[in-house]
Design a protein around this nucleic acid. Structure first.
Length: 465
RNA sequence: GACCCUUUCAUCUAGUGGCCAAGGAUAUUGCGUUUUCAUCGCAAAAGCAAAGGUUCAAAUCCUUUAGGGGUCGCCA
Protein backbone atom coordinates (compact mmCIF):
# COMPACT_ATOMS: atom_id res chain seq x y z
CA UNK A 1 0.00 0.00 0.00
CA UNK A 2 1.40 3.33 -1.08
CA UNK A 3 0.34 6.50 0.67
CA UNK A 4 1.47 9.89 -0.53
CA UNK A 5 0.45 13.42 0.28
CA UNK A 6 0.47 16.99 -0.81
CA UNK A 7 0.98 19.48 1.97
CA UNK A 8 0.52 23.08 0.92
CA UNK A 9 0.49 26.01 3.25
CA UNK A 10 -2.48 28.22 2.47
CA UNK A 11 -0.62 31.45 1.94
CA UNK A 12 -1.22 31.96 -1.77
CA UNK A 13 -2.25 30.38 -5.01
CA UNK A 14 -1.17 26.94 -6.19
CA UNK A 15 2.17 27.28 -7.89
CA UNK A 16 2.99 25.43 -11.07
CA UNK A 17 5.91 23.70 -9.34
CA UNK A 18 3.65 22.67 -6.49
CA UNK A 19 1.21 21.20 -8.94
CA UNK A 20 3.96 19.10 -10.45
CA UNK A 21 5.01 17.55 -7.15
CA UNK A 22 1.34 17.06 -6.29
CA UNK A 23 0.87 15.38 -9.66
CA UNK A 24 3.79 13.05 -9.08
CA UNK A 25 2.45 12.11 -5.66
CA UNK A 26 -1.06 11.66 -6.96
CA UNK A 27 0.06 9.50 -9.89
CA UNK A 28 2.17 7.30 -7.70
CA UNK A 29 -0.69 6.72 -5.27
CA UNK A 30 -3.21 6.09 -8.02
CA UNK A 31 -0.91 3.76 -9.88
CA UNK A 32 -0.56 1.64 -6.79
CA UNK A 33 -4.20 1.90 -5.81
CA UNK A 34 -2.95 3.67 -2.74
CA UNK A 35 -3.99 6.83 -1.00
CA UNK A 36 -3.26 10.43 -1.83
CA UNK A 37 -3.83 12.66 1.16
CA UNK A 38 -4.08 16.38 1.53
CA UNK A 39 -2.69 18.17 4.54
CA UNK A 40 -2.97 21.86 5.11
CA UNK A 41 0.08 23.31 6.79
CA UNK A 42 -1.50 26.20 8.59
CA UNK A 43 0.51 26.43 11.76
CA UNK A 44 1.50 30.00 11.02
CA UNK A 45 -1.86 31.48 11.78
CA UNK A 46 -0.90 34.99 10.79
CA UNK A 47 -0.09 34.10 7.19
CA UNK A 48 -3.01 31.85 6.36
CA UNK A 49 -6.10 32.77 4.45
CA UNK A 50 -9.27 30.95 3.52
CA UNK A 51 -9.09 32.39 0.02
CA UNK A 52 -5.70 30.85 -0.49
CA UNK A 53 -6.95 27.46 0.58
CA UNK A 54 -9.95 27.78 -1.68
CA UNK A 55 -7.72 28.75 -4.60
CA UNK A 56 -5.61 25.66 -4.08
CA UNK A 57 -8.62 23.36 -3.94
CA UNK A 58 -10.07 25.00 -7.00
CA UNK A 59 -6.89 24.36 -8.93
CA UNK A 60 -6.94 20.73 -7.88
CA UNK A 61 -10.48 20.50 -9.04
CA UNK A 62 -9.70 22.10 -12.38
CA UNK A 63 -6.98 19.63 -13.26
CA UNK A 64 -9.06 16.76 -11.99
CA UNK A 65 -6.90 15.60 -9.12
CA UNK A 66 -8.75 14.30 -6.12
CA UNK A 67 -7.50 13.46 -2.67
CA UNK A 68 -8.69 10.70 -0.40
CA UNK A 69 -10.59 11.27 2.80
CA UNK A 70 -10.78 14.63 4.48
CA UNK A 71 -8.08 17.23 4.34
CA UNK A 72 -6.06 17.38 7.52
CA UNK A 73 -5.44 20.74 9.14
CA UNK A 74 -2.37 21.06 11.27
CA UNK A 75 -3.89 23.94 13.18
CA UNK A 76 -6.37 21.45 14.63
CA UNK A 77 -3.70 19.10 15.85
CA UNK A 78 -1.77 21.18 18.34
CA UNK A 79 -2.73 18.88 21.21
CA UNK A 80 -1.14 15.95 19.39
CA UNK A 81 2.10 17.83 18.88
CA UNK A 82 2.07 19.00 22.51
CA UNK A 83 1.84 15.41 23.67
CA UNK A 84 4.93 14.45 21.71
CA UNK A 85 6.83 17.47 22.94
CA UNK A 86 6.10 16.45 26.54
CA UNK A 87 7.15 12.94 25.76
CA UNK A 88 10.49 14.02 24.35
CA UNK A 89 11.07 16.34 27.27
CA UNK A 90 10.38 13.54 29.72
CA UNK A 91 12.62 11.14 27.91
CA UNK A 92 15.41 13.71 27.85
CA UNK A 93 15.41 13.79 24.06
CA UNK A 94 14.47 17.43 24.02
CA UNK A 95 15.25 20.32 26.30
CA UNK A 96 14.44 23.89 27.10
CA UNK A 97 16.73 26.51 25.68
CA UNK A 98 16.87 29.95 27.24
CA UNK A 99 18.99 31.61 24.64
CA UNK A 100 17.64 34.99 23.61
CA UNK A 101 17.17 36.05 20.02
CA UNK A 102 19.96 38.57 20.40
CA UNK A 103 22.33 35.92 21.59
CA UNK A 104 21.36 33.74 18.68
CA UNK A 105 21.96 36.52 16.20
CA UNK A 106 25.37 37.18 17.68
CA UNK A 107 26.24 33.51 17.42
CA UNK A 108 25.21 33.37 13.79
CA UNK A 109 27.22 36.43 12.90
CA UNK A 110 30.26 34.98 14.50
CA UNK A 111 29.85 31.68 12.67
CA UNK A 112 29.28 33.44 9.41
CA UNK A 113 32.46 35.40 9.97
CA UNK A 114 34.30 32.13 10.58
CA UNK A 115 32.98 30.85 7.27
CA UNK A 116 30.89 28.15 8.87
CA UNK A 117 27.37 27.01 8.31
CA UNK A 118 25.36 28.77 11.01
CA UNK A 119 23.85 26.57 13.66
CA UNK A 120 22.89 26.48 17.29
CA UNK A 121 25.81 25.57 19.51
CA UNK A 122 23.95 23.37 21.98
CA UNK A 123 24.73 25.50 25.01
CA UNK A 124 21.58 24.49 26.90
CA UNK A 125 21.67 20.87 25.84
CA UNK A 126 22.89 19.66 29.20
CA UNK A 127 21.93 22.69 31.25
CA UNK A 128 20.95 21.90 34.79
CA UNK A 129 21.43 25.24 36.50
CA UNK A 130 18.96 27.98 37.28
CA UNK A 131 17.31 29.37 34.17
CA UNK A 132 17.83 33.05 33.45
CA UNK A 133 15.04 35.39 34.50
CA UNK A 134 12.52 36.69 32.04
CA UNK A 135 13.33 34.42 29.14
CA UNK A 136 10.56 32.21 27.88
CA UNK A 137 12.32 29.10 26.65
CA UNK A 138 12.00 27.34 23.33
CA UNK A 139 12.18 23.57 23.14
CA UNK A 140 15.00 22.08 21.16
CA UNK A 141 15.46 18.49 20.14
CA UNK A 142 18.70 16.62 20.69
CA UNK A 143 20.28 15.88 17.36
CA UNK A 144 23.16 13.41 17.12
CA UNK A 145 26.52 14.94 17.99
CA UNK A 146 28.64 12.94 15.62
CA UNK A 147 28.46 10.61 12.68
CA UNK A 148 26.37 11.13 9.58
CA UNK A 149 22.71 11.27 8.84
CA UNK A 150 22.17 9.13 5.81
CA UNK A 151 19.08 8.36 3.83
CA UNK A 152 18.36 6.85 0.48
CA UNK A 153 16.58 9.37 -1.66
CA UNK A 154 14.34 7.79 -4.28
CA UNK A 155 15.56 10.21 -6.90
CA UNK A 156 19.01 11.38 -5.94
CA UNK A 157 20.33 8.23 -4.32
CA UNK A 158 22.19 8.17 -1.05
CA UNK A 159 22.32 11.50 0.71
CA UNK A 160 24.86 11.85 3.48
CA UNK A 161 24.93 14.85 5.74
CA UNK A 162 27.34 15.20 8.60
CA UNK A 163 25.68 15.37 12.01
CA UNK A 164 27.75 18.44 12.69
CA UNK A 165 25.65 20.21 10.09
CA UNK A 166 22.42 19.45 11.89
CA UNK A 167 21.88 21.40 15.06
CA UNK A 168 19.50 20.98 17.95
CA UNK A 169 16.72 22.77 16.16
CA UNK A 170 13.66 24.32 17.75
CA UNK A 171 10.61 22.06 17.89
CA UNK A 172 8.45 24.42 19.93
CA UNK A 173 8.60 28.17 19.92
CA UNK A 174 8.47 30.29 23.03
CA UNK A 175 4.78 30.03 23.77
CA UNK A 176 4.61 26.41 22.78
CA UNK A 177 3.60 26.51 19.13
CA UNK A 178 5.41 23.65 17.39
CA UNK A 179 7.58 24.25 14.37
CA UNK A 180 7.45 22.98 10.83
CA UNK A 181 10.00 20.18 10.77
CA UNK A 182 8.60 18.73 13.94
CA UNK A 183 4.95 18.64 12.93
CA UNK A 184 5.71 17.48 9.41
CA UNK A 185 7.54 14.45 10.69
CA UNK A 186 4.78 13.63 13.16
CA UNK A 187 1.98 14.05 10.67
CA UNK A 188 3.75 12.17 7.91
CA UNK A 189 4.24 9.30 10.32
CA UNK A 190 0.75 9.40 11.82
CA UNK A 191 -0.88 9.65 8.43
CA UNK A 192 0.89 6.48 7.43
CA UNK A 193 2.86 7.94 4.57
CA UNK A 194 5.03 5.49 2.74
CA UNK A 195 6.38 7.86 0.12
CA UNK A 196 7.07 11.55 0.51
CA UNK A 197 7.56 13.27 -2.82
CA UNK A 198 8.45 16.94 -2.49
CA UNK A 199 10.61 19.68 -3.94
CA UNK A 200 14.33 19.45 -3.33
CA UNK A 201 14.21 22.72 -1.47
CA UNK A 202 13.23 20.35 1.36
CA UNK A 203 16.35 18.26 1.05
CA UNK A 204 17.97 19.90 4.03
CA UNK A 205 14.83 19.48 6.12
CA UNK A 206 15.01 15.74 5.75
CA UNK A 207 17.88 15.11 8.16
CA UNK A 208 16.05 17.24 10.72
CA UNK A 209 12.90 15.27 10.25
CA UNK A 210 14.88 12.07 10.54
CA UNK A 211 16.02 13.26 13.96
CA UNK A 212 12.35 13.51 14.92
CA UNK A 213 11.47 10.12 13.48
CA UNK A 214 14.24 8.52 15.45
CA UNK A 215 13.47 10.32 18.68
CA UNK A 216 9.83 9.26 18.47
CA UNK A 217 10.51 5.80 17.11
CA UNK A 218 8.42 6.24 14.00
CA UNK A 219 8.87 4.31 10.78
CA UNK A 220 10.44 6.41 8.12
CA UNK A 221 8.85 6.89 4.73
CA UNK A 222 10.82 6.86 1.52
CA UNK A 223 11.82 10.37 0.48
CA UNK A 224 11.93 11.67 -3.07
CA UNK A 225 13.34 15.12 -3.72
CA UNK A 226 12.30 16.50 -7.06
CA UNK A 227 14.57 19.18 -8.51
CA UNK A 228 13.11 22.61 -9.04
CA UNK A 229 11.63 24.14 -12.15
CA UNK A 230 13.63 27.14 -13.31
CA UNK A 231 12.92 29.67 -16.01
CA UNK A 232 14.29 29.32 -19.50
CA UNK A 233 17.52 31.00 -18.45
CA UNK A 234 17.94 28.47 -15.67
CA UNK A 235 17.16 30.98 -12.95
CA UNK A 236 14.54 30.76 -10.27
CA UNK A 237 11.05 30.90 -11.70
CA UNK A 238 9.36 34.20 -10.99
CA UNK A 239 6.15 35.86 -12.05
CA UNK A 240 8.02 37.73 -14.74
CA UNK A 241 8.65 34.44 -16.50
CA UNK A 242 4.97 33.98 -17.22
CA UNK A 243 2.18 32.33 -15.35
CA UNK A 244 3.12 30.69 -12.07
CA UNK A 245 -0.43 30.43 -10.72
CA UNK A 246 -2.05 27.26 -11.98
CA UNK A 247 -5.41 28.91 -12.49
CA UNK A 248 -3.84 31.47 -14.76
CA UNK A 249 -3.41 28.70 -17.29
CA UNK A 250 -7.13 28.24 -17.38
CA UNK A 251 -7.59 31.92 -18.09
CA UNK A 252 -4.98 31.77 -20.83
CA UNK A 253 -6.94 29.03 -22.57
CA UNK A 254 -4.99 25.92 -21.71
CA UNK A 255 -6.67 22.59 -21.20
CA UNK A 256 -5.90 20.84 -17.92
CA UNK A 257 -4.81 17.68 -19.72
CA UNK A 258 -2.26 19.70 -21.69
CA UNK A 259 -0.90 21.29 -18.54
CA UNK A 260 -0.61 17.95 -16.79
CA UNK A 261 1.04 16.37 -19.82
CA UNK A 262 3.47 19.27 -19.94
CA UNK A 263 4.28 19.05 -16.25
CA UNK A 264 4.67 15.31 -16.13
CA UNK A 265 7.31 15.52 -18.85
CA UNK A 266 9.16 18.20 -16.97
CA UNK A 267 11.57 16.02 -15.07
CA UNK A 268 9.97 12.68 -15.79
CA UNK A 269 10.03 10.56 -18.90
CA UNK A 270 9.04 7.21 -20.24
CA UNK A 271 11.36 6.53 -23.15
CA UNK A 272 10.53 8.70 -26.12
CA UNK A 273 6.85 9.11 -25.37
CA UNK A 274 5.59 12.68 -25.35
CA UNK A 275 1.82 12.40 -25.23
CA UNK A 276 0.30 10.95 -22.10
CA UNK A 277 -3.33 10.78 -21.22
CA UNK A 278 -3.99 10.87 -17.50
CA UNK A 279 -4.73 7.15 -17.64
CA UNK A 280 -1.39 6.49 -19.28
CA UNK A 281 0.41 8.63 -16.75
CA UNK A 282 -1.12 6.61 -13.96
CA UNK A 283 -0.17 3.40 -15.67
CA UNK A 284 3.39 4.36 -16.52
CA UNK A 285 4.52 6.73 -13.80
CA UNK A 286 7.31 5.66 -11.53
CA UNK A 287 9.36 8.03 -9.40
CA UNK A 288 12.51 6.12 -10.29
CA UNK A 289 12.24 7.70 -13.73
CA UNK A 290 12.29 11.23 -12.35
CA UNK A 291 15.32 13.26 -13.38
CA UNK A 292 17.89 14.35 -10.87
CA UNK A 293 18.51 17.72 -12.38
CA UNK A 294 16.37 20.81 -12.46
CA UNK A 295 14.47 21.59 -15.60
CA UNK A 296 13.76 24.83 -17.33
CA UNK A 297 10.30 26.05 -18.00
CA UNK A 298 9.60 26.65 -21.67
CA UNK A 299 6.18 27.56 -23.01
CA UNK A 300 6.65 26.24 -26.56
CA UNK A 301 6.02 22.67 -25.70
CA UNK A 302 2.99 23.45 -23.58
CA UNK A 303 1.55 25.36 -26.51
CA UNK A 304 2.15 22.44 -28.82
CA UNK A 305 0.54 20.03 -26.38
CA UNK A 306 -2.40 22.34 -25.92
CA UNK A 307 -2.93 22.52 -29.67
CA UNK A 308 -2.79 18.76 -29.75
CA UNK A 309 -5.42 18.38 -27.05
CA UNK A 310 -7.67 20.99 -28.63
CA UNK A 311 -7.51 19.19 -31.96
CA UNK A 312 -8.39 15.95 -30.27
CA UNK A 313 -11.16 17.25 -28.05
CA UNK A 314 -14.76 16.62 -28.93
CA UNK A 315 -16.62 19.59 -30.33
CA UNK A 316 -19.15 19.48 -27.54
CA UNK A 317 -16.46 19.66 -24.92
CA UNK A 318 -14.79 22.56 -26.70
CA UNK A 319 -18.09 24.40 -26.99
CA UNK A 320 -18.61 23.92 -23.27
CA UNK A 321 -15.18 25.32 -22.42
CA UNK A 322 -15.45 28.18 -24.89
CA UNK A 323 -18.25 29.71 -22.87
CA UNK A 324 -15.61 30.97 -20.48
CA UNK A 325 -14.04 32.80 -23.38
CA UNK A 326 -17.08 34.72 -24.50
CA UNK A 327 -18.12 32.33 -27.24
CA UNK A 328 -21.46 30.62 -26.77
CA UNK A 329 -22.07 28.23 -29.65
CA UNK A 330 -23.53 25.32 -27.74
CA UNK A 331 -26.86 25.78 -29.47
CA UNK A 332 -25.49 26.85 -32.81
CA UNK A 333 -26.91 24.58 -35.52
CA UNK A 334 -23.53 24.49 -37.27
CA UNK A 335 -21.54 23.74 -34.12
CA UNK A 336 -19.74 20.71 -35.58
CA UNK A 337 -18.82 22.48 -38.76
CA UNK A 338 -17.71 25.58 -36.94
CA UNK A 339 -15.32 23.75 -34.67
CA UNK A 340 -14.06 21.39 -37.35
CA UNK A 341 -13.17 24.45 -39.37
CA UNK A 342 -11.34 26.22 -36.56
CA UNK A 343 -9.91 23.80 -34.00
CA UNK A 344 -6.70 23.27 -35.94
CA UNK A 345 -6.10 26.99 -35.96
CA UNK A 346 -6.11 27.71 -32.26
CA UNK A 347 -3.28 26.77 -29.93
CA UNK A 348 -5.29 28.00 -26.97
CA UNK A 349 -8.97 28.42 -26.27
CA UNK A 350 -8.41 32.15 -26.52
CA UNK A 351 -7.10 31.77 -30.05
CA UNK A 352 -9.86 29.35 -30.90
CA UNK A 353 -12.47 31.81 -29.68
CA UNK A 354 -10.89 34.44 -31.91
CA UNK A 355 -11.03 32.14 -34.91
CA UNK A 356 -14.69 31.43 -34.30
CA UNK A 357 -15.54 35.09 -33.86
CA UNK A 358 -13.77 35.81 -37.08
CA UNK A 359 -16.28 33.63 -38.89
CA UNK A 360 -19.35 34.45 -36.85
CA UNK A 361 -18.96 38.20 -37.04
CA UNK A 362 -18.94 39.97 -40.37
CA UNK A 363 -15.59 41.71 -40.91
CA UNK A 364 -15.62 45.16 -39.35
CA UNK A 365 -12.85 46.13 -41.67
CA UNK A 366 -10.72 44.60 -44.35
CA UNK A 367 -7.08 44.05 -43.78
CA UNK A 368 -5.49 46.80 -45.92
CA UNK A 369 -2.86 44.60 -47.49
CA UNK A 370 -5.32 41.80 -48.16
CA UNK A 371 -7.99 44.01 -49.64
CA UNK A 372 -5.51 45.82 -51.81
CA UNK A 373 -4.30 42.57 -53.21
CA UNK A 374 -7.62 40.74 -53.49
CA UNK A 375 -10.01 43.53 -54.41
CA UNK A 376 -8.52 44.53 -57.72
CA UNK A 377 -9.06 43.98 -61.43
CA UNK A 378 -11.82 41.49 -62.08
CA UNK A 379 -12.55 40.93 -58.40
CA UNK A 380 -15.68 43.08 -58.20
CA UNK A 381 -17.17 41.58 -61.33
CA UNK A 382 -16.51 38.01 -60.23
CA UNK A 383 -17.84 38.61 -56.74
CA UNK A 384 -21.10 39.92 -58.12
CA UNK A 385 -21.49 37.05 -60.54
CA UNK A 386 -20.59 34.55 -57.90
CA UNK A 387 -23.22 35.97 -55.58
CA UNK A 388 -25.78 35.60 -58.31
CA UNK A 389 -24.77 32.05 -58.87
CA UNK A 390 -25.20 31.31 -55.16
CA UNK A 391 -28.66 32.85 -55.29
CA UNK A 392 -29.64 30.54 -58.11
CA UNK A 393 -28.29 27.47 -56.41
CA UNK A 394 -29.58 28.48 -53.03
CA UNK A 395 -31.85 25.54 -52.26
CA UNK A 396 -29.19 22.94 -53.08
CA UNK A 397 -26.49 24.38 -50.84
CA UNK A 398 -25.94 22.96 -47.36
CA UNK A 399 -22.66 21.16 -46.92
CA UNK A 400 -19.09 22.25 -47.66
CA UNK A 401 -18.77 19.90 -50.67
CA UNK A 402 -21.90 21.44 -52.16
CA UNK A 403 -20.44 24.90 -51.82
CA UNK A 404 -17.23 23.58 -53.23
CA UNK A 405 -19.13 22.44 -56.28
CA UNK A 406 -20.38 25.96 -56.88
CA UNK A 407 -16.90 27.34 -56.87
CA UNK A 408 -15.73 24.56 -59.16
CA UNK A 409 -18.53 25.31 -61.58
CA UNK A 410 -17.84 29.01 -61.43
CA UNK A 411 -14.15 28.56 -62.10
CA UNK A 412 -14.86 26.16 -64.95
CA UNK A 413 -17.44 28.42 -66.58
CA UNK A 414 -15.16 31.41 -66.46
CA UNK A 415 -12.08 29.42 -67.29
CA UNK A 416 -10.18 31.13 -64.52
CA UNK A 417 -7.88 30.00 -61.74
CA UNK A 418 -9.24 29.32 -58.29
CA UNK A 419 -7.44 32.32 -56.84
CA UNK A 420 -9.32 34.75 -59.04
CA UNK A 421 -12.49 34.18 -57.07
CA UNK A 422 -11.00 32.52 -53.99
CA UNK A 423 -8.99 35.48 -52.82
CA UNK A 424 -11.67 38.16 -53.22
CA UNK A 425 -14.20 35.82 -51.65
CA UNK A 426 -11.98 35.09 -48.68
CA UNK A 427 -11.36 38.75 -47.96
CA UNK A 428 -15.06 39.47 -48.37
CA UNK A 429 -16.03 36.83 -45.85
CA UNK A 430 -13.26 37.11 -43.28
CA UNK A 431 -11.61 40.45 -43.95
CA UNK A 432 -8.25 38.73 -44.25
CA UNK A 433 -6.27 36.56 -46.60
CA UNK A 434 -5.89 33.69 -44.15
CA UNK A 435 -8.21 31.45 -42.26
CA UNK A 436 -10.48 28.46 -42.51
CA UNK A 437 -11.55 26.84 -45.77
CA UNK A 438 -13.99 28.78 -47.91
CA UNK A 439 -16.36 25.84 -48.32
CA UNK A 440 -16.70 25.46 -44.58
CA UNK A 441 -17.10 29.16 -43.99
CA UNK A 442 -19.90 29.46 -46.54
CA UNK A 443 -21.62 26.35 -45.24
CA UNK A 444 -21.56 27.84 -41.77
CA UNK A 445 -22.77 31.26 -42.86
CA UNK A 446 -25.39 30.03 -45.31
CA UNK A 447 -26.22 31.59 -48.63
CA UNK A 448 -27.89 34.74 -47.31
CA UNK A 449 -25.07 35.79 -45.02
CA UNK A 450 -22.45 34.88 -47.60
CA UNK A 451 -24.15 37.08 -50.18
CA UNK A 452 -24.56 39.75 -47.56
CA UNK A 453 -20.84 39.87 -46.94
CA UNK A 454 -20.08 39.82 -50.64
CA UNK A 455 -22.40 42.82 -51.10
CA UNK A 456 -20.59 44.66 -48.34
CA UNK A 457 -17.28 43.98 -50.02
CA UNK A 458 -18.63 45.25 -53.33
CA UNK A 459 -19.82 48.42 -51.61
CA UNK A 460 -16.39 48.80 -50.10
CA UNK A 461 -14.76 48.44 -53.48
CA UNK A 462 -17.15 50.94 -55.06
CA UNK A 463 -16.59 53.50 -52.32
CA UNK A 464 -12.89 53.05 -52.44
CA UNK A 465 -12.52 53.48 -56.19
C1' G B 1 30.97 32.24 3.08
C1' A B 2 29.71 27.01 4.57
C1' C B 3 27.00 22.62 3.42
C1' C B 4 24.04 19.71 -0.08
C1' C B 5 22.21 18.72 -5.05
C1' U B 6 23.02 19.10 -10.23
C1' U B 7 25.38 19.63 -15.59
C1' U B 8 23.47 15.41 -23.06
C1' C B 9 21.16 20.04 -29.07
C1' A B 10 18.04 26.94 -27.72
C1' U B 11 14.24 23.96 -24.49
C1' C B 12 12.13 19.04 -22.51
C1' U B 13 14.51 14.48 -22.61
C1' A B 14 16.44 8.83 -24.13
C1' G B 15 20.94 6.86 -22.67
C1' U B 16 23.35 3.00 -16.24
C1' G B 17 31.25 0.76 -20.14
C1' G B 18 30.86 -1.75 -26.28
C1' C B 19 24.09 -1.72 -29.59
C1' C B 20 26.04 5.96 -29.73
C1' A B 21 30.81 8.98 -35.36
C1' A B 22 24.48 10.03 -29.26
C1' G B 23 17.96 8.69 -30.36
C1' G B 24 13.01 11.25 -29.79
C1' A B 25 10.01 15.80 -28.98
C1' U B 26 9.29 21.23 -29.10
C1' A B 27 11.11 25.56 -31.26
C1' U B 28 13.92 27.10 -35.91
C1' U B 29 14.85 26.60 -41.40
C1' G B 30 13.67 24.26 -46.14
C1' C B 31 10.47 21.14 -49.19
C1' G B 32 5.73 18.79 -50.06
C1' U B 33 0.20 18.61 -49.25
C1' U B 34 -3.56 22.72 -49.01
C1' U B 35 -7.21 28.11 -53.43
C1' U B 36 -4.85 31.00 -48.27
C1' C B 37 -3.54 30.24 -43.17
C1' A B 38 -3.32 26.31 -39.96
C1' U B 39 -2.95 21.06 -39.59
C1' C B 40 -0.27 17.08 -41.53
C1' G B 41 4.10 14.60 -43.99
C1' C B 42 9.36 14.73 -45.24
C1' A B 43 14.17 16.82 -44.57
C1' A B 44 18.08 19.97 -42.47
C1' A B 45 20.68 22.35 -38.70
C1' A B 46 21.74 21.80 -33.54
C1' G B 47 24.34 18.65 -27.88
C1' C B 48 27.57 14.66 -24.03
C1' A B 49 30.27 22.02 -19.55
C1' A B 50 36.10 21.81 -19.47
C1' A B 51 40.55 19.32 -18.29
C1' G B 52 42.88 15.16 -16.50
C1' G B 53 42.70 9.98 -15.30
C1' U B 54 40.85 4.37 -15.15
C1' U B 55 39.90 0.87 -19.41
C1' C B 56 41.15 -2.88 -25.19
C1' A B 57 36.69 0.44 -25.04
C1' A B 58 33.58 6.21 -21.53
C1' A B 59 28.03 10.51 -22.46
C1' U B 60 28.19 6.43 -19.00
C1' C B 61 33.37 5.12 -13.57
C1' C B 62 37.08 8.50 -10.64
C1' U B 63 39.47 13.49 -9.70
C1' U B 64 39.75 18.63 -10.31
C1' U B 65 37.82 23.13 -12.31
C1' A B 66 33.75 25.95 -14.06
C1' G B 67 28.41 26.94 -14.44
C1' G B 68 23.36 26.45 -12.32
C1' G B 69 20.13 25.43 -8.18
C1' G B 70 18.93 24.72 -3.02
C1' U B 71 19.72 25.38 2.32
C1' C B 72 21.80 27.79 6.44
C1' G B 73 14.69 31.02 10.99
C1' C B 74 11.23 30.77 17.47
C1' C B 75 8.62 30.74 7.97
C1' A B 76 6.58 26.73 5.73
Amino acid sequence: MITTRFAPSPTGYLHIGGLRTALFSWLWARKNSGKFLLRIEDTDLSRNSDEALEAILKAFDWVGMSYDGDAIYQSKRFDIYAKYIDQLLEEGKAYKCYMTKDELTALREEQMAQGERTRYDGRYRDFTGTPPEGVEPVIRIKAPLDGNIIFDDGIKGEICISASEVDDFVIARAGGVPTYNFVVAIDDALMGLTDVIRGDDHLYNTPKQIVVYEALGFDMPKFYHVAMINNEQGKKLSKRDGATDVMEYKTLGYLPEALLNFLVRLGWSHGDQEIFSVEEMIELFDPKDINKSSSNYNLDKLLWLNAHYIKNSSNNKLAQMLKDFGVDIENHDKLELLLDATKERGKTLVELANQINLILNAPAEYNPKASKKAFKGTAREYLEEFANMLKNWDSTLHTPPEYHAVIDKFVADKEIGFGKIGQPLRVSLLGAMTGSGLDEIMAILGVDETINRIQKAIEFIDNRD
